[in-house]
C-alpha cells in the first residue's frame, strides 16, 4: 500500500469528476417533471458517486462529490443552490457509507437511502434558510421521488460497478 495517491488514481478520479459534472449538465437540460415541487431530480451525477463509493472508497467518493459540487455551482448555479446541494450530498453520502458498512442492503437499497437523505438534507437547509418549518411538507412528495430516483441510480451504478471493475483494470 502506497501512502500517496498514485498518478493513475488521480487521473481516474479526475475522469470520474468530469463525468459527474457532465451528467449534472445533462440533467440541467431535462425539463422539470412536476413543476409544483422544486428539488425533484434524477440525480444522474450520483451514479458516479455510487460507483466510486463501491469500487474505491468513501474518501474518494466524498472528494469527487465535493469537487463536482463546487465546479457545477460555479458554472450553472448560485450560492443558494450550492448550500442545498452540499447539505444533500454530505447527508446522503454519510448515510450511504454507513448502510454499506452494515452489509444488509445491496447497492440499490443503499442508493435509495441516499436519494431520500439527499432530499432530507435539502429540505432541512431550506427550512433553516427560509425560517419556515412548513417546507417539511415537501418531504412527502420528495421522498417518493427520491426513492424512484434512488432505484434508478442504484441500478445504473450497479451495472457500472460490474462492467467497469476499476480494481482489475488498474493496479492502484
Amino acid at each position: 500500500m502506497k501512502k500517496h495517491l498514485g498518478i493513475k488514481k488521480v487521473a481516474f478520479l479526475g475522469l470520474c469528476t468530469a463525468l459527474a459534472l457532465l451528467l449534472a449538465y445533462v440533467e440541467s437540460l431535462i425539463p422539470p417533471v412536476f413543476a409544483a415541487v422544486p428539488g425533484i431530480k434524477m440525480g444522474l451525477p450520483n451514479i458516479v458517486i455510487l460507483y466510486v463509493l463501491y469500487s474505491l472508497d468513501v474518501r474518494y467518493a466524498a472528494t469527487v462529490s465535493l469537487v463536482r459540487l463546487c465546479i457545477s455551482s460555479m458554472l450553472f448555479g448560485n450560492a443558494m443552490a450550492f448550500a442545498y446541494s452540499l447539505a444533500g450530498a454530505v447527508l446522503s453520502l454519510a448515510v450511504m457509507w454507513a448502510l454499506k458498512k452494515t452489509n444488509l442492503l445491496s447497492g440499490t437499497g443503499v442508493s435509495v437511502a441516499g436519494g431520500v437523505c439527499h432530499n432530507i438534507g435539502q429540505v432541512l437547509v431550506a427550512m433553516v434558510l427560509l425560517d419556515t418549518p412548513q417546507i417539511a411538507y415537501y418531504m412527502l412528495v420528495l421522498s417518493v421521488t427520491g426513492i424512484i430516483a434512488g432505484v434508478f441510480v442504484g441500478v445504473c451504478g450497479g451495472i457500472l460497478v460490474k462492467r467497469v471493475p476499476v480494481g482489475k483494470m488498474f493496479k492502484f
Binding site: L104, S106, V112, A113, V116, S143, I147
Partner: peptide, 17 residues
Amino acid sequence: RKARNDVIFIASLLLVV
C-alpha cells in the same frame, strides 16, 4: 438476501410516507 432486504426497506419507506 440483500435483494430481499432492499424490497423490504423500500416498501417500509413508502409505508412510512
